[in-house]
Amino acid sequence: MTAPEIQKPLLDVRGLTIEIETRRGPAIIVDGINLTVGKGETVGVVGESGCGKSLTMLSLVRLLPNKIKVKGGTAEFAGRDLLKMSKSELRQVRGGKIGFVFQDPMTSLNPVMRIGDQLCEPLIYHRNMSKADAGKRAIELLRLVGIPGPEQRITAYPHELSGGMRQRVMIAMGLACDPELLIADEPTTALDVTIQAQIVDLVKDLRKKLNMSVVWITHDLALIAGLVDRVAVLYAGTVVEDAPVGELFARPTHPYTRGLLASIPKLSDERASRLSSIGGTPPEPGRRPKGCPFAPRCALAESICHERVPVLEPVAGHSGHRVACFVAQRQLKEAA
């Protein structure tokens, strides 16, 4: 599939900075993230635990936990800044124009409400539907996400459904009001591979049907290879590389992206050959090193990397590919 033509992006996040309150004072956990999502585009946000990928998305709909606050930046959605909206405007966006699918369906569904009633809530609130119409739509939605016998299922409680079913209900809730943007936070991490394949195919299918934009947050590069148009790689609260999906896999440029891709076992590997790995571990949130956050683990790091923070700059000759790395940028210039 081709990337949609460049126009004003649906979501435009600029310089988003998030801070956490700790005993030692405030610490920055997301540092000046820029991210755009075009109309009808699917963007994968990839990173390891603690890199700030979930917090970034939660901050957009202002669902950050206590003690974690947005310190700066803007997040324009269809021309309006989500971070400055009034509460009542925000309520129109949440679940209406932006749908959210959370990672863990067991804790995100209300255990004492029938799933039909949970599905009807946003419809009654955002779409002013009558209860009867909402009920009909709920059945439609459950059928859409591939739940067999939806007429009977709407009266079920979450505990009566399997993990895969619950995740489908979550997706149905995210889709309930035909959102322009669906944010899916590791929606398949808790699921088995066969169910994961079902869910991925479902989202691909629905995206085409509804022309919706999707942000898919994950730690699994293999999973999004066949799913997204573009990938943003996060490390310790910054975007280190941003490229169309084919480009990223063909020419990974940031040492971290290269390391990640190299550490995934491939079909062509010899048995028990050594996997290339990245030494060390990611910094804890709030304990970011000075300079480039990846420098302490980077084999290519030079003295400048420990001093200054690299910014995301275009990779010459490859449109839409940007990387934040002093060494990679210099090597590219030398090669040109």
């Binding site: 394949a197 699994d220 293999a222 999973l223 999906v245 896999f249 891709l261």
Partner: peptide, 9 residues
């Protein structure tokens, strides 16, 4: 069902 890290494939 296992995804491969190769967009073309």
């Amino acid at each position: 069902a296992v995804p491969e890290a190769d967009p073309e494939l």
